[in-house]
Design a protein around this nucleic acid. Structure first.
Ligand SMILES: [Mn+2]
Ligand SMILES: [Mn+2]
Ligand SMILES: [Zn+2]
Ligand SMILES: [Zn+2]
Lengths: 136, 136
DNA sequence: TTCTTGACAAGAATTATTATTATGTGATAA
DNA sequence: TTATCACATAATAATAATTCTTGTCAAGAA
């Protein structure tokens, strides 16, 4: 919490609420999800403030922005390198903590300088596909 | 070109132009890119028609939709499983044709049924990072 | 008829604008 | 030392604007 000050970010109740909702949250919520959640305890919260705060937190490295979901951005408080498994039906996202060897052969990589990678696994979550096949 | 008829899609000049632009195109263009390109030879082309056609082509499996770029969808005429390397500076996208072993340990995967995967590599392309370090 | 186009409207997510408000920082008082 | 006040400035909230994408529908083509 103190870390905000040491970094040039003012400590506001809104930011605390957003950070509190995100910390340890494994759901990879969208801006709208976050807005709804913090609005409960914070009815005057503005959606723009959510976006602003998320951007500030991202710039400072406290969260990462995921492009997994074509419809909207998802936010992740777990910033260390990991991968994701997304349910193609309900868009639930699960963290995948596992190491993979991902060295691209030189003649494939060309002259790009590789700086990172991210694997998206696709699948069907337990809720959407509990043993049986699933319609839509 | 012939394949349209065998599948229930009428072969219109607009669709031919879009398909022609996409076939063999390694640039992973956006809808806007495609619109601009085909508009040159086809000034009356509507952006809605581009989206409609792209959707039809995707449904029939002739192209795939990529979520690589946070800003907009990119379209890829190469539909067989492959991965992508995106320049974090200019958003250029390069195909990566290489196989990777991506078996998720059971206790990590949980009860998801895995159906596919896609690796996004990040890097700096030759144009953006030609040997020297690069400002912004 | 049936499908497709193109013009335009409509949605949804995100960003920009801006007047108002709150926060951090010193200075000062207790 | 601790509390209080003043102020510059950053943050908020309301709302407008932008961007990407989808929907509607009359008119045209097959
Ligand atoms: Mn995660
Ligand atoms: Mn590709
Ligand atoms: Zn699911
Ligand atoms: Zn580049």
């Amino acid at each position: 919490m103190q870390k905000f000050k040491n970094i040039g970010l003012k400590l506001t109740p809104q930011r605390l609420a957003i950070l509190g909702f995100l910390e340890g949250n494994p759901d990879h919520p969208s801006a709208e999800d976050i807005y709804k959640a913090v609005s409960v305890q914070f009815p005057t919260m503005s959606l723009a403030t959510v976006y602003n705060t998320l951007d500030a937190l991202r710039e400072k490295g406290y969260i990462i922005e995921l492009t997994i979901d074509p419809a909207k951005k998802r936010f992740d408080p777990f910033t260390k390198m990991h991968h994701h498994l997304i349910c193609t039906s309900c868009k639930r996202v699960k963290d995948i903590h596992a190491d993979f060897m991902l060295d691209i052969p030189e003649q494939v990589r060309g002259d790009f300088r590789i700086t990172g990678n991210h694997i998206e696994f696709y699948g069907v979550c337990p809720v959407c596909g509990n043993g049986h096949e699933r319609r839509i």
